[in-house]
């Protein structure tokens, strides 16, 4: 595989992770919500779009009886909307919880989603792989398909970046920032903080759903073990490394992490410790996280002044 092809694949994955990180940055960077359900929203987007755009399985071993064979754009949109709704649904009972408690509830909610996917075979093919997910314009692209998909994914990253950046600097974003700082204050200033938290959760989850759809339509086949909590943790690392509160930081952080993880896949297995590379990859992410937090606690593109404001006493 030529280097360019390799970089395109890594770039596509980085784009998908960047969308996830953008959503997470709205939750944590803007609103201060400890969301650990991101892998769940990612899964909802991926499965919704896959189920809507494939026909029901046929043959004697087929388990999945549901399938709609709709256009891919319908699937992507539905996956985005449904992930947002699931985000609101999870937030409804939980978003009033303080910090750590919200983290635990959302983490278990994501696992609940994954186990539902794993067990409801009539809908999702269960433990088996959901295969033959169509790629958009698959047969009609005259040049490298990866190049096309790379451009598609990063165009969507660009649109989402502009949209979220605008929301963050709007009066809406100002209320989210106030909730992050001290949610008694916006409450005293007439803001229904509960509803703002729900909106933040829903919007961030929706973008994770879009990422899921783009992922499903690129990789042909998905299964429930792709959506383990480790995805959520990686996105957390991406947002922290990039700098919480910064959308360019979220994109940079996601790209750095994907690059670190994917590039090591192509180290041959016969180098020393080559058979343990998958564990070493996680260690590398951990080491980068520690180094960034030690030398640049605000993250690569975070705002150091904001981090230090009010800590002098």
């Amino acid at each position: 595989m030529a280097l360019v092809d390799l970089l395109l694949v890594v770039g596509i994955i980085a784009g998908v992770y960047s969308l996830l990180a953008i959503g997470m940055n709205m939750h944590w960077g803007d609103t201060g919500l400890l969301n650990f359900a991101h892998a769940g929203f990612f899964a909802v987007g991926a499965y919704t779009s896959a189920i809507l755009t494939t026909p029901p399985a046929t043959g004697s071993l087929a388990t999945r009886v549901v399938g709609f064979d709709l256009p891919i754009v319908v699937g992507l949109l539905a996956g985005t909307v449904l992930a947002g709704l699931v985000g609101v649904l999870i937030a409804l009972p939980s978003v009033r919880l303080e910090g750590d408690y919200l983290a635990i509830v959302t983490l278990s909610a994501a696992e609940l989603i994954r186990l539902l996917i794993h067990n409801e075979a009539w809908l999702t093919t269960g433990a088996q792989t959901l295969k033959n997910i169509p790629r958009p314009l698959d047969a009609t692209i005259p040049f490298s398909y990866d190049l096309f998909y790379f451009v598609l994914v990063w165009a969507l990253v660009g649109v989402c970046y502009l949209l979220f950046e605008r929301l963050s600097s709007s009066p809406f974003g100002r209320v989210l920032h106030a909730i992050r700082e001290n949610d008694d204050v916006p409450l005293a200033l007439g803001k229904n903080t509960y509803v703002f938290k729900l909106k933040s959760f829903g919007i961030g989850a929706a973008i994770a759903g879009l990422a899921g759809g783009l992922w499903a339509h690129y990789v042909y086949a998905i299964s429930s073990i792709m959506f383990l909590p480790s995805i959520t943790f990686l996105i957390w690392a991406a947002v922290i490394i990039g700098g919480a509160g910064s959308y360019t930081g979220a994109i940079l952080g996601a790209s750095v992490i994907v690059f670190l993880r994917q590039i090591t896949r192509f180290i041959p297995g016969d180098v020393p410790f080559g058979d343990q590379l998958s564990y070493i990859r996680l260690m590398v992410v951990g080491v980068v996280l520690i180094l960034v937090l030690y030398y640049r606690p605000q993250g690569l593109l975070g705002d150091a002044e904001r981090l230090q404001a009010g800590t002098s006493e």
Binding site: S170, F172, R174, V175, L189, K191
Partner: peptide, 17 residues
């Protein structure tokens, strides 16, 4: 200061976007 203004239309998601 601006946070405290009441009935701010920009606090609605779609109008803000």
């Amino acid at each position: 200061m601006l946070l405290a203004s009441q009935n701010n239309p920009g606090e609605k998601v779609l109008a803000a976007a």
